[in-house]
Measured scan of single mutants.
Amino acid sequence: MATADDFKLIRDIHSTGGRRQVFGSREQKPFEDLVDLGWLKRSSVDSRATHYQITERGTSAAL
């Protein structure tokens, strides 16, 4: 179930172009929650960072 923080984060991601790069596993937790909701997808993972991209469902949630 989505929380107020989830909606705040997806709106922030949407307003800044729909993509986010995250460093460190602790910082990934809120983004992984949005992946579980179907609002974000992991577009790539490298040794230092994970890249996320907003989905259509995420765009709808952000509006």
Score class of each variant (00 low, 15 high):
residue 45 V to D: 07
residue 43 S to Y: 13
residue 42 R to D: 03
residue 61 A to C: 06
residue 44 S to T: 10
residue 46 D to I: 06
residue 45 V to E: 08
residue 13 I to Y: 01
residue 39 W to V: 00
residue 6 D to H: 12
residue 51 H to G: 07
residue 41 K to A: 12
residue 7 F to Y: 14
residue 36 D to F: 13
residue 28 Q to A: 09
residue 40 L to Q: 00
residue 5 D to G: 10
residue 35 V to C: 09
residue 56 E to H: 08
residue 22 V to C: 05
residue 22 V to G: 03
residue 22 V to K: 03
residue 37 L to D: 00
residue 8 K to E: 10
residue 61 A to M: 08
residue 16 T to A: 11
residue 38 G to E: 04
residue 51 H to P: 02
residue 45 V to C: 09
residue 46 D to L: 06
residue 49 A to D: 06
residue 55 T to W: 00
residue 51 H to N: 12
residue 15 S to D: 12
residue 20 R to A: 12
residue 44 S to M: 13
residue 45 V to L: 07
residue 46 D to G: 09
residue 3 T to C: 07
residue 62 A to H: 02
residue 57 R to G: 07
residue 55 T to N: 03
residue 63 L to M: 11
residue 3 T to F: 05
residue 40 L to W: 00
residue 11 R to K: 11
residue 33 D to P: 05
residue 29 K to W: 05
residue 8 K to L: 10
residue 45 V to G: 09
residue 54 I to L: 05
residue 45 V to R: 10
residue 19 R to W: 14
residue 34 L to S: 01
residue 57 R to M: 14
residue 32 E to K: 08
residue 51 H to C: 15
residue 59 T to E: 09
residue 21 Q to T: 15
residue 57 R to V: 11
residue 24 G to E: 08
residue 59 T to S: 07
residue 13 I to S: 00
residue 57 R to E: 14
residue 61 A to E: 04
residue 39 W to S: 01
residue 43 S to F: 13
residue 28 Q to C: 10
residue 48 R to T: 14
residue 15 S to F: 12
residue 55 T to H: 01
residue 17 G to C: 08
residue 9 L to V: 03
residue 11 R to N: 05
residue 59 T to F: 06
residue 58 G to V: 01
residue 35 V to K: 02
residue 2 A to L: 04
residue 47 S to E: 14
residue 57 R to T: 13
residue 55 T to V: 02
residue 8 K to W: 11
residue 43 S to N: 10
residue 44 S to P: 07
residue 21 Q to Y: 13
residue 10 I to N: 01
residue 18 G to S: 03
residue 10 I to V: 06
residue 53 Q to K: 07
residue 44 S to N: 10
residue 23 F to Q: 10
residue 23 F to N: 09
residue 24 G to P: 05
residue 40 L to C: 03
residue 10 I to M: 03
residue 15 S to Q: 13
residue 12 D to V: 08
residue 34 L to Q: 01
residue 32 E to G: 05
residue 40 L to V: 05
residue 57 R to H: 09
residue 25 S to E: 15
residue 35 V to E: 03
residue 11 R to A: 08
residue 60 S to L: 15
residue 13 I to H: 01
residue 24 G to V: 07
residue 13 I to R: 00
residue 1 M to S: 11
residue 21 Q to P: 06
residue 31 F to S: 01
residue 6 D to E: 07
residue 58 G to S: 00
residue 3 T to I: 04
residue 29 K to V: 06
residue 35 V to T: 04
residue 41 K to Q: 12
residue 4 A to G: 08
residue 7 F to I: 09
residue 3 T to P: 03
residue 50 T to M: 08
residue 36 D to P: 03
residue 34 L to W: 01
residue 18 G to Y: 02
residue 37 L to T: 02
residue 31 F to T: 02
residue 35 V to W: 03
residue 63 L to G: 05
residue 63 L to I: 10
residue 42 R to E: 04
residue 15 S to L: 13
residue 53 Q to H: 09
residue 41 K to G: 06
residue 25 S to A: 12
residue 52 Y to P: 00
residue 50 T to I: 14
residue 60 S to E: 15
residue 33 D to H: 15
residue 24 G to R: 09
residue 27 E to I: 06
residue 53 Q to E: 14
residue 7 F to M: 07
residue 37 L to I: 06
residue 22 V to W: 03
residue 62 A to I: 04
residue 11 R to C: 11
residue 45 V to K: 10
residue 34 L to H: 00
residue 48 R to I: 14
residue 60 S to G: 08
residue 63 L to C: 08
residue 13 I to F: 03
residue 60 S to R: 14
residue 59 T to L: 12
residue 23 F to R: 10
residue 46 D to H: 08
residue 29 K to F: 04
residue 2 A to S: 05
residue 18 G to D: 03
residue 3 T to E: 04
residue 15 S to Y: 11
residue 43 S to M: 15
residue 56 E to Y: 08
residue 41 K to E: 14
residue 24 G to A: 08
residue 30 P to F: 06
residue 10 I to W: 01
residue 54 I to D: 01
residue 37 L to H: 05
residue 30 P to S: 06
residue 47 S to D: 14
residue 39 W to E: 00
residue 38 G to D: 04
residue 52 Y to L: 01
residue 9 L to Y: 03
residue 18 G to L: 02
residue 37 L to V: 03
residue 61 A to Q: 04
residue 54 I to V: 04
residue 23 F to C: 12
residue 7 F to W: 11
residue 36 D to C: 12
residue 26 R to E: 15
residue 18 G to I: 02
residue 62 A to Y: 03
residue 27 E to C: 15
residue 20 R to G: 04
residue 1 M to Q: 13
residue 42 R to H: 06
residue 57 R to W: 11
residue 39 W to H: 00
residue 18 G to P: 02
residue 62 A to M: 03
residue 34 L to K: 01
residue 2 A to Q: 04
residue 4 A to R: 10
residue 17 G to Q: 06
residue 58 G to P: 01
residue 3 T to S: 10
residue 25 S to C: 10
residue 52 Y to C: 01
residue 53 Q to P: 00
residue 41 K to C: 12
residue 4 A to W: 11
residue 44 S to F: 15
residue 48 R to L: 14
residue 42 R to I: 15
residue 45 V to A: 09
residue 59 T to D: 04
residue 41 K to T: 15
residue 4 A to F: 10
residue 15 S to I: 11
residue 49 A to R: 08
residue 25 S to I: 12
residue 40 L to D: 00
residue 3 T to H: 06
residue 63 L to R: 07
residue 22 V to M: 04
residue 40 L to R: 01
residue 24 G to T: 07
residue 55 T to A: 02
residue 17 G to A: 05
residue 24 G to N: 13
residue 37 L to R: 06
residue 37 L to G: 02
residue 50 T to L: 06
residue 49 A to S: 15
residue 36 D to T: 14
residue 61 A to F: 05
residue 16 T to E: 09
residue 6 D to I: 06
residue 61 A to S: 04
residue 13 I to E: 01
residue 6 D to G: 05
residue 49 A to V: 13
residue 63 L to Q: 07
residue 11 R to I: 12
residue 35 V to L: 05
residue 9 L to D: 01
residue 42 R to M: 08
residue 59 T to V: 15
residue 19 R to C: 15
residue 63 L to N: 07
residue 7 F to A: 03
residue 54 I to C: 03
residue 27 E to H: 11
residue 47 S to V: 10
residue 27 E to K: 11
residue 9 L to M: 05
residue 9 L to G: 02
residue 8 K to D: 08
residue 24 G to M: 07
residue 33 D to Q: 14
residue 11 R to L: 12
residue 31 F to Y: 15
residue 34 L to T: 00
residue 14 H to Y: 15
residue 5 D to T: 07
residue 45 V to W: 11
residue 28 Q to N: 08
residue 12 D to P: 01
residue 4 A to D: 12
residue 14 H to W: 14
residue 24 G to Y: 07
residue 37 L to M: 07
residue 19 R to N: 11
residue 17 G to R: 04
residue 59 T to W: 06
residue 39 W to D: 00
residue 22 V to F: 04
residue 62 A to T: 03
residue 63 L to S: 06
residue 10 I to A: 02
residue 4 A to V: 11
residue 30 P to Y: 05
residue 59 T to Q: 09
residue 15 S to P: 00
residue 14 H to C: 10
residue 10 I to F: 02
residue 3 T to G: 06
residue 44 S to L: 13
residue 1 M to G: 12
residue 20 R to N: 03
residue 51 H to Q: 11
residue 56 E to I: 09
residue 16 T to R: 09
residue 56 E to N: 08
residue 28 Q to K: 11
residue 16 T to F: 06
residue 56 E to Q: 10
residue 29 K to Q: 11
residue 20 R to P: 04
residue 43 S to P: 04
residue 11 R to S: 07
residue 13 I to W: 01
residue 37 L to E: 02
residue 5 D to F: 09
residue 25 S to F: 09
residue 40 L to Y: 00
